[in-house]
Simulated assay, not measured.
Amino acid sequence: MPDPDLRELEAKINAAKARSAPAKPHQEEHYSQAQLAWRMVIELVAGLGIGFGIGYGLDWLFGTLPIFMVLFVMLGLAAGIKTMLRSAQEIQDKKIADMAKNDEGA
């Protein structure tokens, strides 16, 4: 039967290893960053695509020059950028909250 002091020492060593181990492996964090980047690209492209579709549809309906298409592509671009900025702010807020949580635990 192992000595109680050895078990206590082993528990302390395991606790120290757990504290110093990274929360997430580096590869998982990189994958997460790639997901976030693709999310932002998709949001921008979706805004442009929706704006183009609405503008083209209105131009076709009214038989006008591509004035509505240009107008709605610009509005779609603005909406896509606004959505990207909102996503970036969410990510930043989450990282700040995680850092604050880690600092409190230390």
Rank of each mutant, 00 (worst) to 15 (best):
A88E: 12
K12P: 00
T83E: 13
M69W: 05
H30S: 11
S87R: 15
I96H: 13
A37N: 12
A15H: 01
A18Y: 00
A37I: 13
K101A: 09
A21C: 02
A78H: 04
K12C: 00
N14L: 03
G49Q: 08
K12A: 00
Y56A: 05
V73Q: 06
R7S: 03
D59T: 12
L71M: 09
L36W: 09
E90L: 15
A16L: 04
E90F: 14
F62I: 09
A46E: 06
W38D: 06
G47A: 02
D103G: 06
W60L: 12
D5W: 06
Y31G: 09
D59G: 07
D98K: 13
P22M: 07
F72H: 04
F68P: 00
I96F: 11
I67H: 05
A34N: 15
E90P: 07
L77S: 01
A11S: 01
L65A: 12
K24N: 13
G55R: 00
K101N: 07
E29K: 11
L44I: 04
D103A: 14
G53A: 13
I13G: 00
E28H: 08
A23Q: 11
K94S: 09
K12N: 00
G49A: 10
F68L: 04
P22E: 07
P2M: 08
Q33H: 14
A100T: 08
S32Y: 10
Q35W: 11
F62V: 05
G51V: 05
P66T: 11
E8F: 05
R19W: 03
L36A: 10
L85F: 11
A97P: 04
D3L: 06
V41K: 08
V70N: 03
M84V: 15
S87E: 13
W60E: 09
L36M: 12
G57V: 05
K101E: 06
P4Q: 03
G53Q: 08
V45S: 07
I42S: 04
L48D: 01
A79Q: 03
A78I: 04
L71H: 06
N102V: 11
L61T: 14
G51S: 03
A97L: 10
A100R: 10
A97G: 03
Y31H: 14
N102L: 15
S20F: 09
A21S: 07
D3Q: 08
I54Y: 03
A34V: 14
S32Q: 14
P66A: 10
G57Y: 07
D103Q: 15
T64D: 04
L85W: 13
A21Q: 03
H26G: 08
L71C: 11
M40D: 08
E104Q: 14
M84K: 12
G47K: 00
L48T: 01
L65Q: 09
A23L: 07
V45F: 11
I50H: 02
H26K: 13
A34L: 14
K12W: 02
I96Q: 11
N102F: 14
A97N: 06
Q89T: 12
A15D: 03
L58E: 01
H26W: 15
I13S: 00
E104M: 11
